[in-house]
Amino acid sequence: MTQRHSTRGAWLIMLASLITIAICVYDYYTPETGLIGTGGVVTVAGAGALMLAASLTLGLVPNRSGFLQGFLVVSILLDIIGSSVAGYFLESPVIMAAQALALIGWLINVIGDAAERSVEIDEVEDED
C-alpha cells in the first residue's frame, strides 16, 4: 500500500551525491590527488551513484510503499556511513563534507516524514 511520504531533504542528498561523484571522477584522473586510477574512488563513485538513484526516488516518487520508504532511508544511511569511512581513509575532506551534507538531507527527510506521519495521525484522530 502506498502512502505519501516526505520529499524534503532529497535534493540535498542528490546534491551531495553529485559532489561525491564529481570529486571521485576528478580524483581518478588527477595525479596530484594521490588517488589517480585507484579502486577506492571508483567504489565511492559507485556508492555516490546509488545514493543519487535513491535520492531521486525519494524526491520524485512521493507516493511510495512503507517498505520502499524504509529501504531508501536505511540504504542512504548505510551509503553515507560507508562513504564517510572511505572518505576518511582516502583522506578526502570533500567526500566527507559531501556525506555530512547528505546526512543533513537524510535527517530533514526522516524528521519531515515523521512529522507528516504525525499530522496524518492527528487528522485521522480528528475525523474519529
Partner: peptide
C-alpha cells in the same frame, strides 16, 4: 601504506 587509494 596505500592500497586501492586508502591510506593506512
Amino acid at each position: 601504506v596505500q592500497k586501492w587509494g586508502f591510506y593506512m
